[in-house]
Design a protein around this nucleic acid. Sequence first.
DNA 1: CCTGTCACG
DNA 2: GACGTACGTGACAGGG
Length: 933
Amino acid sequence: MSGFGKGSHLHLIDGSAFIFRAFHALPPLTRKSDGLPVGAVQGFCDMLRRYIGRDHGRDAPTHIAVIFDKGSHTFRNDLYDQYKANRDEMPEDLRPQIPLTRRATEAFNIACQEMEGYEADDIIATLACRARDAGGQVTIVSSDKDLMQLVGDGVVMFDAMKNRVIDREGVEEKFGVGPERVVDVQALAGDSVDNVPGAPGIGVKTAALLLNEYGTLEELLDRAEEIKQPKRRQTLIEHRAQIELSKRLVQLHCETPIKFTLDDLEARHPDPDTLLGFLAEMEFRTLSRRIAEALGEEAPTIPEPTAPSDGERAAPEMPAIDPEAYVTIRDAETLESWIAEARERGYLAIDTETTSLDEMRADLVGVSLCVTPGAAAYLPLAHRPASSDDLFGSDALEEGQMDMEAALALLKPLLEDPAVLKIGQNMKYDAKVLARHGIEIAPIDDTMLISYAQHAGLHGHGMDTLSERYLAHQPIPIKEVIGSGKSQITFDRVPIAEATKYAAEDADITLRLWTLLKPELHRARVTRVYETLERPLVPVLKEMEMQGICVDRDTLSRMSNAFSQKMAALEDEIHELAGEKFNVGSPKQLGEILFDKMGLEGGKKGKTGAYATPADVLEDLATEHDLPARVLDWRQLSKLKSTYTDALQEHINPETGRVHTSYSIAGANTGRLASTDPNLQNIPVRTEEGRRIREAFVAPEGKVLVSLDYSQIELRILAHVAGIEALKEAFRDGQDIHAATASEMFNVPMDEMTPDIRRQAKAINFGVIYGISGFGLARNLRIPRAEAQGFIDRYFERFPGIRAYMDDTVEFAKKHDRVETLFGRVIHTPEISAKGPRAGFARRAAINAPIQGTAADIIRRAMVRMPSAIAGLPAKMLLQVHDELLFEVEEGATEDLIAVAREVMEGAADPVIRLDVPLVVDAGQGANWAAAH
DNA sequence: CCTGTCACG
DNA sequence: GACGTACGTGACAGGG
């Protein structure tokens, strides 16, 4: 092949970016034989594999290289000693992996370049310039904004994570100027990530504005006197030297003295022996297999370490997933042989197929089983013909299916056998469906929860996610089986052969995930979390959800009508005030009325360019104008009607006459439950009008609703974990905690406390739990930011332990990429070392998670113990609302229930954690939920 | 399908 | 006028 030139296409991969992304995106992984951390290497290899394997079309690389940073001292440090001085230390687990990524690149037979004293970005710039000058095309695989100055004239960037090409327009979108002006913008705006100073008070927006007016940075600086805004003018004149220095820092070096040529980067096929050898050495089983497949080679055998130190059996090598190999069970004899096999092994994976996602309405269609990876079967029970044009036969069952009752009678002893473990993905669903057929499945393991206990905060725990992540396999999408949208069919209309592939695959995948993930619980030190806080919750929630709560349709529908009338009246008024008719429910139209037509101040546009009209903005306007005030009233009614009085009626189950929510155990990263379909954890309570919705949640004749809720549980936990003696004492003395805080902060004696001072202290107390910021508190209290900051400063002065706790938590998160609750629940914080605005989010979330999570653990413990504690009472636990449990109790037994349930809840931390503060539970009862509060 | 809005703890 | 900020959720309506 001739040298690099026209028609050549050079791909330059930003190696460091790949490494960091791989490191932070993946759970920590160590080489089995010796514990060497290799997660980032694996991720790096997989990213390389995916990048070279993707369909580049006409842009396929003729030349390719991975460029790395080398050393930490570059010529930029000589220019400015603070350059990149704010970077955190490299995580300990990552350091030994860096040289391995170089070796990985070489193993892929991709050129691998680095140069002492220069950043990867400079080498990339130099190569890109040369390639462009030679008439070739360049793709820079990175999303680093520092590289955007290189875009244009045949050079584009590619963000491999977002799968997005960044061209000239992409750069303009980001910087407001073309690529040739990017350095000028950066010189002015500076960069907090690299610690480039720029001009104080000038950001990207302002910089772009100025440059678009003056053309170039030099022109701008020379003519700075002409700038109208005094502040900007002064900044530019005063900081000229600093701006010019910043430009030299961000300007990439196109003449890096590299010792190789473009031709050295020619794309080459990997040598299978070298590549597979390296992967085998790293013990990447799945990756070896996939790459061997792609190369048409035999995958290397990687010996399993014999007897790992913790005694766990290592995961067996599994055969490839093959939907053609699955069996359809059509008779008792075959079913019995599968049952026998499961009994022999002592476990099986199981999955039910139904006609709906709502377990309380879903009809059972079939059951799939898997006894060992690859050996899975589907037992169809209620499949019907796909087309319904056959007038008589359309609802008849398909031939070749076992009778449902007979099949379930055979399965029941197995599914209830305490000696056989039943493994599922989201087992609560299957347990509920089976319970409606008289089968109480137990004992169970749940791959969703096993993943959640280990990986909360890292990724979702749905089967598709887990399969792709841990098995490198994309399951058959349900859309391909039942379609979507209007043409969607129910699973009973899926032909049995097709259903077998889909359903049996699910069971197969579940079993594979279990063999991989279950042994890891131990290594991740979350076995107890899984065994005490996740797994036992499945049967408890199942019972609560199946029990449901009685909701009075007439009450709701009467309220709905009343809301309609009030809304119609308000709507007329609003149209009158606006002088025209418009859709009050459309923020876009409302914004145009308020800010364009009426010319009110404060209109801000969102991402889509439409006005945003959130409540706090309308509240400010409402002091002067009637229209926004009416809109606020209208919105409240609209919300209540659509979300509650109307939608709730649709959720009343026709068979039970009750509303059955579904709790997701692995939905919230902190350990909280989430309630869906309907969400019964956000029924209104804060306003009088909304609270009346709770009157529709009733106890049937002869029964009473009893509510027990933890008083200030999160603040109590904060007092304990941060070790704040004053707070602990206030709680021990049963004081009003917000008043006590106010007293301590503002030196006001308790007997002189005013509601307003108490309110401010309360806001600060909550703010602390959320990872307080002056801005947030100011907005919440509607006070100037400086005043809010003053409050916070005073708070930390009085409670220095709180600040220490917050700092320690963030430090822990940065070191370990996770935080933990008092009960050992792990919440990963992969963004904690992120740069830019995401850092603030991650920091606050990390501060909040141990507190919110510990509270969640405590109520989970109470819920797990509750059924046996109240077994002798005529009472049922119905709902959980984060710090509240709601029960339905026979009249006359309420006091007993309160006594027992309170004891369970107040003692829920025992005996694992001895809290320095008492847990206090308040109780109430009544004919409906409003009255029980 | 995404965004804005708002309900809860 | 650098940026964007309290934490965690889910449902509904509007609009492309």
